[in-house]
């Protein structure tokens, strides 16, 4: 009987000691993490386009933290979904087509001689990337434009175009080589090259 009691006693003491150590460690090594909403917000592309059904990326981040699906952001595309899935430890699902499709990076351009200066686009732009005053010609600050499309619809004279951000010699980069596996399926010697004719 005594041995049983002794064993129990020892176990109790041990668990108290280890509990104490763990508790201390938690207090001592506590890491102040970003609130989850901030972390989610940091992963969203900040295009502020509202295609997710929320007025901006942050509201969507809040919605995600409240359980909304992570595949409602077309500008972010699959890469963002993957990042969100990694962060929230859920499965990455394909983009929800109802909210739009992933497009190339674009930027709004106002055909300036047609602009009537109604300021409607300014009000629509979520990042204040349009410059102009009432009854004056308006223009888009290309560097600030997120390509969200929101200014196109309100324009009464349809003078805003979304143009693809083209590839120039400055932002061009090499493609990823096709690798062994892809290449071995159509095994040709010219794999990492492209034949171009003049």
């Amino acid at each position: 009987m005594f041995t049983v009691l002794l064993a129990i006693g020892i176990l109790v003491v041990l668990s108290l000691i280890f509990g104490g150590i763990l508790g201390y460690a938690k207090v001592r090594f506590h890491v102040e993490g970003d609130p989850i909403v901030d972390q989610i917000d940091a992963l969203l592309p900040q295009t502020q386009c509202g295609q997710c059904g929320h007025p901006g990326c942050r509201p969507y981040a809040e919605a995600i933290s409240n359980g909304e699906a992570i595949n409602h952001c077309p500008p972010g595309g699959q890469a963002t979904i993957q990042a969100l899935a990694d962060l929230l430890d859920v499965e990455a699902i394909p983009l929800d087509g109802d909210h739009g499709t992933e497009t190339a990076q674009r930027v709004a351009v106002i055909r300036e001689d047609e602009c009537i200066g109604c300021t409607k686009c300014i009000q629509a732009c979520p990042v204040d990337a349009i410059l102009g005053a009432a009854k004056q010609m308006h223009t888009v600050i290309a560097d600030e434009c997120t390509g969200c499309d929101l200014c196109v619809e309100p324009c009464p004279v349809d003078c805003i175009d979304m143009v693809d951000v083209g590839i120039t010699a400055k932002n061009w980069s090499w493609d990823k080589p096709q690798g062994v596996a892809a290449q071995s399926l159509n095994i040709i010697a010219t794999d990492r090259s492209t034949e171009v004719s003049q």
Partner: peptide, 8 residues
């Protein structure tokens, strides 16, 4: 003239 284009 078809020229080969590859990386260095």
């Amino acid at each position: 003239m078809a020229l080969l284009r590859i990386t260095s």
